[in-house]
Design a protein around this nucleic acid. Structure first.
Length: 307
DNA sequence: TAACCGTGGAC
DNA sequence: TGTCCAAGGTT
């Protein structure tokens, strides 16, 4: 197939459609790109934007973040979700200081060795921060390839070796063109070739799409829903919410006992936790899990974010 | 490998 | 209204 034409079509489309995201602007730094990739893991751009901006102002370089307590990173992570990402980003900053003299490394294997950096993030940072030719495979790229090339409505439930092979085959040989291709396919997946209701009328490669040619068949499997209400994740999230907003350590008993008087010196942040009405065993399991994960620590005064 | 890990907006 | 989903990583 003529992939050169495909490359040009998407590149031209990207010129007019690309969003002006701050981590893409000319003044961006590799650190800014790395931070954005951590925050964007399973998290929409719109929610990342304000947190990223504030984060970069507070910690403009890896040594800045490494010098701060891990608890500060968790606090300023806010409500982005998956707070272990904040912990790992802090650990990654420390590793950058220890192993790389405070500069984000520019090689895939060095990036991959950092805490919280997997195959996607390592490839994305190498490509987008350093202009390297890398096989970038994220959920957007997987979906675009599945439709455009594979003729399927959705990619397989988990990443397959065949998908990665296909992504590598589609990558332009030229380094600069490969970077552009990666970001353009991602953008197409984010803005046009979306999961729920793709805007095919706006698609620059509609006439090349195998899925459209096949009559847009329905997905061959049903995505597994993520249960939420009543789960440990919900309880952990509620406890973390309390810890983020607490100035002082919280006595352990307050985590699993409903206070007699909520208005008497007890933060309103507790309400979210108490209204869950979680069983004692679940509260214990959630709290102990947070302590084991390093998301919280226990002192004689009580439980708090790590120092 | 599949389960686990947060959060909130869109439809 | 409840379900689905968002630039994944780790174990």
């Amino acid at each position: 197939m003529d992939t050169a034409e495909l490359h040009h079509s998407l590149s031209d489309w990207f010129d007019g459609a690309a969003r002006d995201l701050p981590w893409r602007l000319p003044g961006r730094t590799p650190w800014g790109v790395l931070v954005s990739e951590f925050m964007l893991q399973q998290t929409p751009v719109s929610r990342v934007l304000p947190v990223w901006t504030e984060w970069m102002k507070r910690w403009p370089t890896p040594p800045d973040l490494a010098a701060a307590p891990a608890g500060d990173a968790l606090r300023h992570w806010g409500r982005l979700g998956y707070p272990r990402r904040a912990l790992r980003l802090h650990a990654a900053a420390t590793a950058v200081v220890v192993r790389h003299e405070g500069e984000v490394p520019d090689r895939y294997d060095e990036l991959l060795a950092l805490p919280g950096v997997g195959t996607y993030t390592a490839a994305a940072v190498a490509a987008f921060a350093f202009g390297r030719r890398e096989t970038v495979v994220d959920t957007n790229i997987r979906r675009v390839h599945a439709r455009l090339i594979g003729g399927d409505a959705l990619p397989a439930p988990s990443l397959t070796a065949a998908e990665t092979r296909r992504a590598t085959e589609l990558l332009p040989e030229d380094e600069a063109a490969s970077v552009r291709w990666n970001v353009a396919v991602m953008e197409l997946g984010a803005l046009v070739c979306t999961a729920r209701t793709p805007a095919c009328a706006q698609c620059p490669v509609l006439d090349r799409c195998a899925w459209v040619a096949a009559g847009r068949p329905a997905p061959t499997y049903v995505p597994k829903g993520q249960p939420w209400a009543g789960t440990d994740r919900q309880v952990r999230g509620a406890i973390m919410h309390v810890l983020r907003h607490s100035e002082h350590p919280i006595p352990r008993h307050l985590v699993h006992e409903r206070p007699v008087d909520l208005a008497h010196g007890i933060s309103a942040e507790f309400q979210k936790l108490y209204t869950l009405n979680a069983p004692f065993e679940q509260l214990e399991r959630a709290l102990n899990g947070l302590l084991a994960d390093g998301l919280a620590e226990e002192t004689v005064q009580g439980v708090r974010l790590p120092g």
